[in-house]
Simulated scan of single mutants.
Amino acid sequence: MKNTKNNYYFYFAIPIDRIDQRIDNFLHIYLSTVPKSAIYRLLRKGIIKVNGYSIKPNYKFKNNDRIYIPQKIYSQHINDKDKIIFHSTYLNTEKIQFLNKRILYEDSYLLIIDKPTGIAVHGGSGLSYGIIEGLRILRNDVSLELVHRLDKDTSGILIIAKKRSALRFLHEQFRINNILKYYLALVKGTWNIKEKSITTYLHKKISGISRLMTNDNRIGKKSETCFQIKEKFRIATLVNIYPITGRTHQIRVHSQYLGHPIALDKLYGDNDFNNLMKKKCGLNRLFLHASELICIHPNTKKTLYIKAPIDNHLNKCLLYLRKNIQ
């Protein structure tokens, strides 16, 4: 991925079987939803490039050429199957092999992974690939579909359907609140209330490139979260969290609303608290982890219980809090 004049570009090595093919003919195939006149215009204006440079429509690919396509065009006009072809030409599969080691459960219907922090669940918005694209490359299977999502900086349990029937079943289970998801979070300050439930109305506010969720009783969507104290420290509290609804950034916004923002939350957090956690505990990531999930299996209809322990980095943070600043 490359940022050129504030526009994100995806770049891909040209497959060997496409060497000597004209770029206009190549784009007619992979951008089939874009009119030919628009493709020529994109090439003439240098919006689509080769090796970072503008080229003419009759340019023929050479060995080791890379084609640069703007993120917006890539996301809207290249289908998932062709994205796999593109990604497999440049993405070193060794770099994503670690995903196979993160699998918590798998059968012919489901693949459940312990998503690491710092990786989006899918590509887009300037990201060349995410968890789902990486797994599709490793498995060579475009039928894998996300059942739900986690924020890029949130770690933990992520469900992926391997069959359309499983996807439909689990989407319905989410709709009727029949899937239980529990999170662990370290929040600012000491809570005095053992359990707390909060309901607000969240609305997405877009300002420039930023997208923040705000509370708005007029146009927001009803959002409900339950918090329960797990462990207290002098300057922080470890809480179990059960979101009844599943709005974007819901847990993070509700934690902030209660005056207890999550540690290392760059959007809704407290800078002083974040800096203290960095300095004292060495924390360098959002302390929010999807730790437990209970659902009905789409085929057997039996209860499926999945648990994902926190990683060593979060665990070391808690050990330090217990030992030094309780």
Rank of each mutant, 00 (worst) to 15 (best):
K5M: 07
K5N: 11
N6Y: 08
N7G: 07
N7D: 12
Y8L: 06
P15D: 01
N25H: 14
N25M: 13
L27I: 04
Y30G: 01
S32M: 09
T33P: 08
K36C: 12
R41Q: 14
L42Y: 13
G46Y: 05
I48S: 03
K49N: 02
V50Q: 00
V50K: 01
G52E: 01
K56Q: 14
R66T: 01
Y68L: 00
P70K: 04
I78H: 01
D80R: 12
D80Y: 11
K83E: 00
T93S: 15
L99Q: 05
K101V: 07
K101F: 07
R102T: 14
R102S: 14
S108W: 11
I112S: 02
D114G: 02
I131S: 03
I131R: 05
I132Y: 00
I137S: 02
D141Q: 09
S143F: 06
E145D: 11
K152S: 07
R164E: 13
S165N: 11
F169P: 04
L170R: 01
Y182G: 10
A185M: 06
N192M: 13
T199R: 14
T199D: 11
Y201L: 12
K205N: 13
G208H: 03
G208W: 04
R211I: 10
R211Y: 09
M213A: 09
N217H: 15
S223F: 04
F227M: 03
F227E: 01
Q228I: 06
K232E: 10
F233N: 08
R234Q: 14
A236F: 02
I241M: 01
G246R: 00
R247K: 09
H254W: 07
Y257N: 09
I262N: 02
I262R: 02
A263V: 05
L264W: 10
C281W: 05
R285Q: 08
I294L: 10
N299Y: 13
L304E: 01
A308W: 01
N312R: 14
N315F: 05
K316R: 09
L319F: 11
N324V: 14
